[in-house]
Computed example of a mutant assay.
Amino acid sequence: MDVNVKAVLFDLDGTLLDTAPDMANAANCVLADYGLSPLNERQIKANTSYGARGLLRAGFGNQIEGKDLDALRQSFLHYYANNICTTTQLYPGVVTLLDGLDAMGVPWGIVTNKPGFLTEMLLPYFPRLLSTGTLVCADTLSKAKPHPEPLLHAAMELGIDNQACLYIGDIEGDIIAANAANMISAVAAWGYIGSEHKPLEWDSDLVFNKPEEILSLF
């Protein structure tokens, strides 16, 4: 595909950072409070990018019926905030990618559905991410992904036309948001894509298997 990319916007969990072990640990703490078994690897991979609700729904299964999901989420957030970066790490190739973008003068930013207070707690552990040109979190605006507004806001902050922005993420909602924002959409195939997901059916413009491959666009 012939594209003219002038800026790159990234999802965070499952795209720049492998947060799955720490998020799964928080979910498992909530499950343990209810006497339930911990999440298995398949559940973790398939649901981490859907945040607290995705992980908890997977863990509780049918027992989620009748539960106060907001209260469960608050419990998850408590556990996660207290152990937000025990094993979280940058994906291999991310630093190479960001260094390459900076060397070429290509602006980049982060648009995530992670709550702002958690994102602000987590990013200082990864100084390379603190040079992001824009940071839009789940609660920065009144809308979150898959609504296009967060992506359009990020493009505006970077001063780049939305049609010249690439947005890359690892769940279908990211692709829906990018397409709705008239951006170039791409799947981060190295992220949390479960066996039941079908990323080739997500109507994305591009699929990348490694972060460094994005540099081929420039």
Results as ranks from 00 to 15, higher is better:
residue 3 V to R: 09
residue 6 K to L: 14
residue 6 K to G: 13
residue 8 V to R: 05
residue 10 F to K: 04
residue 11 D to F: 10
residue 11 D to A: 11
residue 13 D to N: 13
residue 13 D to F: 07
residue 14 G to N: 08
residue 14 G to H: 08
residue 16 L to D: 06
residue 17 L to M: 09
residue 19 T to N: 12
residue 20 A to E: 09
residue 20 A to R: 09
residue 22 D to N: 11
residue 22 D to Q: 11
residue 24 A to H: 10
residue 29 C to I: 00
residue 29 C to V: 00
residue 31 L to Y: 08
residue 32 A to M: 11
residue 34 Y to F: 15
residue 35 G to M: 11
residue 36 L to F: 03
residue 39 L to T: 12
residue 39 L to C: 15
residue 46 A to C: 12
residue 46 A to T: 13
residue 51 G to F: 08
residue 52 A to Q: 09
residue 54 G to H: 06
residue 55 L to N: 06
residue 57 R to Y: 11
residue 58 A to G: 15
residue 61 G to S: 10
residue 61 G to E: 06
residue 62 N to L: 14
residue 62 N to Y: 07
residue 69 L to N: 02
residue 70 D to E: 14
residue 70 D to I: 13
residue 70 D to W: 00
residue 72 L to W: 03
residue 75 S to P: 02
residue 76 F to R: 04
residue 78 H to G: 11
residue 79 Y to P: 14
residue 83 N to C: 07
residue 84 I to R: 02
residue 85 C to G: 12
residue 86 T to F: 04
residue 88 T to C: 15
residue 89 Q to L: 10
residue 92 P to T: 02
residue 92 P to H: 01
residue 94 V to G: 08
residue 95 V to G: 02
residue 99 D to I: 04
residue 103 A to L: 14
residue 106 V to A: 01
residue 108 W to F: 12
residue 111 V to R: 00
residue 113 N to Q: 09
residue 113 N to C: 12
residue 115 P to D: 03
residue 117 F to E: 10
residue 119 T to D: 02
residue 121 M to W: 00
residue 121 M to C: 15
residue 122 L to F: 07
residue 122 L to K: 01
residue 123 L to K: 02
residue 123 L to S: 03
residue 129 L to R: 01
residue 130 L to E: 14
residue 131 S to N: 13
residue 131 S to F: 04
residue 132 T to M: 14
residue 134 T to N: 07
residue 134 T to M: 07
residue 137 C to V: 07
residue 141 L to P: 15
residue 143 K to D: 12
residue 144 A to R: 15
residue 147 H to I: 00
residue 147 H to G: 00
residue 148 P to L: 10
residue 149 E to R: 01
residue 150 P to M: 03
residue 150 P to G: 05
residue 152 L to K: 09
residue 153 H to C: 11
residue 155 A to L: 12
residue 157 E to P: 01
residue 158 L to S: 01
residue 164 A to K: 07
residue 164 A to V: 00
residue 165 C to E: 05
residue 165 C to D: 08
residue 166 L to M: 09
residue 169 G to D: 01
residue 170 D to T: 02
residue 171 I to T: 10
residue 171 I to C: 13
residue 173 G to M: 09
residue 174 D to M: 10
residue 174 D to H: 08
residue 175 I to F: 07
residue 176 I to N: 00
residue 178 A to F: 07
residue 179 N to F: 04
residue 182 N to S: 13
residue 183 M to A: 12
residue 184 I to Y: 04
residue 187 V to F: 02
residue 188 A to C: 13
residue 190 W to V: 02
residue 191 G to C: 04
residue 194 G to P: 12
residue 196 E to Q: 05
residue 199 P to L: 01
residue 200 L to K: 03
residue 201 E to H: 13
residue 202 W to Y: 06
residue 204 S to R: 00
residue 205 D to Y: 01
residue 209 N to L: 07
residue 210 K to L: 00
residue 210 K to R: 13
residue 211 P to H: 00
residue 211 P to L: 05
residue 214 I to L: 13
residue 215 L to F: 06
residue 216 S to C: 06
